[in-house]
Amino acid sequence: MYRHKEKTLKCPQCNRRFIYDYEVKSHVSNVHTQSRETFQCEICDFTSKFEISLKTHMVRVHTKDFLYKCQTCDKGYTRKSELESHEKIQHQGVRHVCQHCGKGFLTERAFTKHSKSHDPDHIEKVFTCHLCSVVFRSYTSHNRHMKRHNGQLPGYVCDICGKRITTLQSLKFHKRTHTGEKNYLCGTCGKVFIRKQALVTHTRVHTKERPFQCLVCSKRFTQKSSLNIHMRYHTGERPYGCEFCSKKFVTNTLLKDHKCKANG
Score class of each variant (00 low, 15 high):
Arg95Met: 14
Ser26Cys: 09
Gln92Met: 15
Leu106Arg: 09
Leu83Ala: 01
Ser35Thr: 09
Asp74Val: 02
Lys103Trp: 06
Thr38Val: 13
Cys70Met: 07
Leu83Arg: 01
His27Leu: 12
Cys44Ile: 09
Met58Ile: 12
Cys73Trp: 03
Phe39Cys: 04
Thr47Asp: 01
Asp74Gln: 07
Lys69Leu: 11
Leu54Met: 08
Arg60Gly: 00
His114Phe: 11
His62Thr: 02
Gly93Arg: 04
Cys41Pro: 05
Cys98Thr: 12
Phe39Gly: 06
Gly102Leu: 03
Cys98Trp: 12
Lys49Gln: 03
Arg79Asn: 04
Ser26Lys: 12
Ser85Gln: 10
Cys98Pro: 00
Gly102Asn: 06
Lys69Ser: 07
Gly102Thr: 09
Ser35Leu: 02
Ile43Thr: 15
Gln92Trp: 14
Cys44Met: 11
Ser53Ile: 00
Lys64Arg: 13
Tyr77His: 09
Ser29Thr: 08
Arg109Trp: 02
His96Asp: 03
Thr63Lys: 09
Gly102Ser: 10
Gly93Phe: 07
Phe66Ser: 12
Cys70Lys: 02
Lys80Trp: 02
Thr33Leu: 14
His57Thr: 03
Lys116His: 04
His100Ile: 14
Ser48Asp: 05
Ser117Tyr: 00
Ser35Arg: 01
His62Tyr: 02
Lys49Leu: 03
Ile52Arg: 03
His57Gln: 09
Tyr68Asn: 11
Lys88Asn: 14
Thr78Asn: 15
Lys64Asn: 07
Ser29Lys: 05
Ile52Glu: 04
Glu51Arg: 11
Ser29Gln: 06
Gly102Ala: 08
Ser53Thr: 15
Cys101Ile: 02
Phe50Gln: 14
Arg60Cys: 11
Tyr77Asn: 06
Phe66Asn: 11
Cys73Gln: 05
Gln40Ala: 11
Val61Thr: 06
Ser117Val: 07
Ser29Met: 04
Phe46Tyr: 13
Thr47Cys: 07
Val31Gly: 05
Lys55Arg: 12
